[in-house]
Design a protein around this nucleic acid. Structure first.
Lengths: 210, 210
DNA sequence: AGGCCACCATACGGGGCAGTATGGTAGTCT
DNA sequence: AGACTACCATACTGCCCCGTATGGTGGCCT
């Protein structure tokens, strides 16, 4: 019966280069969180169900409930991980830029290219009815909008103007995400896309005239 | 132990003539479609389930399956009805306006005030994975974007500029809907809201300088 | 008046997922 | 080597919804 003859005896038993099969995954909580985020990016939070997720990882839910108390616990952990990574990305790559106009421009350009965190953001926008999602998305969105408003203020706009412009820019961001990633409007080719981004930058970042 | 003494034995136990109870609704297919749209506006398409909907209308699903072959059949019918009404609204109130700048401005202002159709639009944006929703939303969105592009062309923009500006304006529309209706960002007071709309109009509609 | 039919209730079977209980196995430490 | 523990499988209950089958009732027509 036992077919593990070729398995345990070969000294250190290297990681089975061949038979693929089960691979003995041995998952950790972080693996589940990562898999959940992947699933959110691909199919939305609604697709994050325990049993399908377990099937995807070639285990059963008996495994899952060892690592997490419930589905919601997994979701909260995954969201926490994602939010943390998102904030760090902003602080590392954009915030150091001194000139506010350059900072805004780079923020727009960066956002238009880096995808993963925005794909998840877009997917989560469709599940705001979930109690764990709402507060995370609200924090994150307000933080970003305020970040924009501060930059616009530094460009010389009044408080109200800066706030309005920040809202407008962020709305355009959110809407574009939804139109492209969820609604799947006919995908623009690379050239057209760059043209659009340039248009947005020109339209939403006040010109040099102070 | 058994407390059902007062329950089963009372002869025929008439249907309670006094408590007004059911009101004898006698529903039609249109009633179901309307109720479905109401539910979508309130809680999204996912909440449109046969049994809950029937409870809401004080009937059982026995009634539903007389009018519709399936849940999806109801959804398709409701979406068709909604799309039709949306198109008619545009054609009746905005399209007659001659001057393109005035037409655009009125389109923005109207959109910012009339709510029902946009609430449904926003809710449906969260359920684009549903096969019946995707095509409707795609048609409707493309139609609106092209409508904007035509108006921008009439204002003197080039083809590409007009298309980009239309995409931007529509993205701002979609994003603002999501931020306000789904994410429920702190509701702006009426004055602030009007200020925002004015800001958007000023930023997205080219000034008189041709 | 009697019947037809639109509309509805009741009851049932089935499926998918959440969560629990409990037993199994493989790696590690001593 | 034996025990301990981390990780996983199996099997079960329960809930909620979809869809079907079938029987009931009231308004309308002739």
């Amino acid at each position: 019966m036992h077919v593990l003859a070729k398995q345990g005896c070969a000294g250190m038993a290297e990681v089975e280069p061949k038979t693929e099969r089960a691979e003995r995954p041995r998952l950790s909580a972080a693996d589940w969180e990562q898999a959940a985020l992947d699933l959110i990016a691909e199919q939305g939070l609604a697709a994050v169900a325990v049993e399908p997720l377990a099937r995807r990882l070639n285990v059963t839910k008996g495994s899952f409930y060892w690592h997490f108390a419930s589905r919601d616990a997994l979701i909260e952990a995954a969201l926490k991980r994602w939010e943390q990574a998102d904030v760090e990305g902003l602080m590392r790559h954009v915030d150091p830029i001194e000139d506010p106009r350059e900072r805004l421009t780079q923020l727009f350009l960066r956002t238009s290219h880096e995808m993963r965190t925005h794909v998840i953001y877009s997917a989560l926008l469709n599940t705001l009815d979930h109690p764990a999602v709402q507060p995370v998305m609200q924090r994150l969105s307000l933080r970003r909008i305020n970040y924009l408003a501060v930059a616009y203020r530094a460009l010389g706009l009044s408080r109200r103007e800066a706030m309005h412009r920040a809202r407008l820019a962020y709305s355009a961001y959110v809407g574009f995400l939804q139109l492209m990633l969820q609604l799947k409007l006919p995908r623009m080719d690379s050239e057209d896309f760059e043209g659009y981004v340039a248009h947005v930058v020109a339209a939403l970042i006040p010109s040099a005239a102070v």
